[in-house]
Measured scan of single mutants.
Amino acid sequence: MDTYKLILNGKTLKGETTTEAVDAATAEKVFKHAANEHGVHGHWTYDPETKTFTVTE
């Protein structure tokens, strides 16, 4: 398992979190669910070198 990071750049919610996942696709599902639960919808990017997802509203 690897550690993946999410950076939230929402209009009303900003922050960072991490998750352990077997691959980037699994981490993305976890992060998108969490972002949706917090009402953050926007443009997603992924940097494979740093294993970091970013969502920007």
Rank of each mutant, 00 (worst) to 15 (best):
H41D: 12
E57P: 06
T3R: 09
T52W: 02
Y4E: 03
G15M: 15
A27F: 01
T19F: 12
E16L: 11
P48D: 09
T54I: 07
L6M: 06
T26E: 14
A21L: 02
K5E: 03
F53G: 00
K29E: 11
V22H: 10
F31S: 00
D23C: 05
F53R: 00
L13S: 09
P48E: 11
M1P: 08
T19P: 01
T18V: 09
T50I: 06
L13G: 08
A25C: 13
E16G: 06
A34K: 13
K11N: 11
G10T: 14
I7R: 05
W44P: 01
T52H: 03
M1I: 10
H43Y: 13
E20G: 04
N36C: 12
T45G: 06
K29F: 08
E20K: 12
V22T: 12
A24L: 09
L13W: 15
V55S: 01
E20A: 08
T50H: 07
P48L: 06
I7W: 04
W44Q: 00
L13P: 04
K51A: 03
N9Q: 10
L13K: 11
V22P: 15
K51E: 01
H43N: 12
T50L: 07
T19S: 04
H33T: 12
E37P: 02
E16Q: 10
G10E: 03
T19A: 07
T26P: 01
D2T: 13
A24K: 11
H33S: 12
H33L: 14
V55N: 01
T45K: 07
G10L: 15
E49N: 11
K51C: 04
V40N: 03
A35Q: 03
T26W: 07
P48M: 07
G10F: 13
G42S: 02
A21T: 04
V22M: 12
G10V: 09
E28H: 09
D2S: 13
E20V: 14
L8K: 00
H41R: 12
H41A: 10
D2W: 10
T45D: 12
Y4V: 02
N36A: 14
H41F: 14
T3N: 05
T54F: 07
V55C: 04
E20T: 13
T3F: 07
D23I: 02
E57W: 06
G39Q: 06
D47A: 06
T54W: 07
N36S: 12
H33Q: 15
A25L: 09
H38W: 15
E57Y: 05
V55E: 00
K32N: 05
T19V: 14
H38L: 15
A27Q: 00
T52F: 03
D2P: 07
A24T: 06
H41I: 13
V30W: 12
T45S: 13
K51Y: 07
Y46W: 03
V22F: 11
A27T: 00
L6Q: 02
N36E: 14
V22E: 12
F31N: 00
G42R: 01
K14Y: 14
A35P: 01
N9G: 04
K32A: 07
V22S: 11
V30L: 12
T3H: 07
G10K: 04
E20S: 10
V40Q: 03
E28L: 15
H38R: 14
Y4Q: 03
M1E: 08
Y4C: 03
N9C: 15
I7E: 04
A34Y: 15
G39N: 10
K11S: 10
H33K: 15
D23M: 03
G10C: 12
E49V: 11
T56A: 05
F53D: 00
T54E: 07
H41M: 11
T12Y: 14
A21S: 06
T52C: 06
Y46P: 00
E28S: 05
E37V: 14
M1V: 10
E28N: 04
H38C: 15
T12E: 10
L8M: 13
V30Y: 14
K51H: 07
T3A: 05
T50P: 01
H43V: 14
G42V: 02
D23T: 04
L13M: 14
E16C: 15
T56K: 05
A21Q: 06
E49M: 12
K5I: 12
L13N: 08
D2M: 10
A24I: 09
K51S: 03
D2N: 14
N9R: 09
A25W: 09
K29I: 12
E20Y: 12
A35N: 03
L13C: 15
N36G: 10
H43E: 15
T19W: 07
T54R: 05
W44M: 05
F31G: 01
K29R: 13
T18A: 06
K14P: 04
E49Q: 11
T56W: 09
E16T: 11
L6E: 03
Y4S: 03
G42I: 02
A34L: 15
T19R: 04
E16D: 05
K5H: 12
A35L: 14
T26Q: 11
P48W: 07
E37S: 11
T26Y: 07
D47H: 06
D23L: 03
T18Y: 14
V55R: 00
L6R: 00
Y4A: 02
E57N: 04
E16N: 06
D2E: 13
E20R: 12
E20W: 11
K14C: 15
T17D: 06
V22L: 12
K14R: 12
L13D: 05
D2R: 09
T18W: 13
A21Y: 02
H33I: 14
T18G: 04
Y4I: 02
K29Q: 11
K29S: 10
A21C: 08
G42F: 04
L13Q: 09
A34I: 15
T45I: 08
T54P: 00
G15E: 10
E49I: 10
A25I: 10
T26H: 12
E28P: 00
E16H: 10
I7Y: 05
H38F: 15
T54H: 06
G39H: 06
N36R: 14
A27M: 01
G39S: 06
G39D: 06
E16V: 14
T50Q: 06
E16M: 13
V55M: 04
G10R: 03
H38N: 10
T54L: 05
D47T: 06
N9S: 07
T17S: 11
H38V: 15
V30I: 15
G15I: 15
T50C: 05
D23V: 02
K32I: 10
V22Y: 13
G10A: 06
T3W: 10
A27V: 02
A34N: 07
T12G: 09
M1R: 10
V40C: 05
D2A: 12
A25Q: 11
D2K: 13
K29L: 12
Y46E: 00
G42T: 02
A35G: 03
I7L: 05
K51F: 08
A34G: 04
G15V: 15
V40E: 02
K11Y: 10
W44G: 00
E20P: 06
V22K: 12
Y46R: 00
Y46T: 00
E28V: 05
T19M: 12
T3I: 14
T56L: 05
A24Q: 09
H41K: 13
P48V: 08
V40M: 07
T26G: 10
Y4N: 03
T19D: 02
E49A: 12
L8Q: 02
F31Y: 01
H33P: 02
L6S: 01
T52E: 04
M1H: 09
D23A: 03
V40W: 11
T19Y: 11
T18I: 09
L8E: 02
G10M: 13
H33D: 13
H43T: 15
K5N: 05
T54A: 05
T17G: 07
N36H: 13
V40T: 03
T18S: 11
T56S: 08
T54D: 03
E49G: 10
H41E: 11
T26L: 05
P48Y: 06
H38K: 14
G42A: 03
G42N: 02
A25E: 12
T18E: 08
E28Q: 08
T18M: 09
K5F: 13
A24F: 13
A24W: 12
F53A: 01
G15H: 15
Y4R: 02
V30N: 06
E37W: 09
L6D: 03
P48A: 12
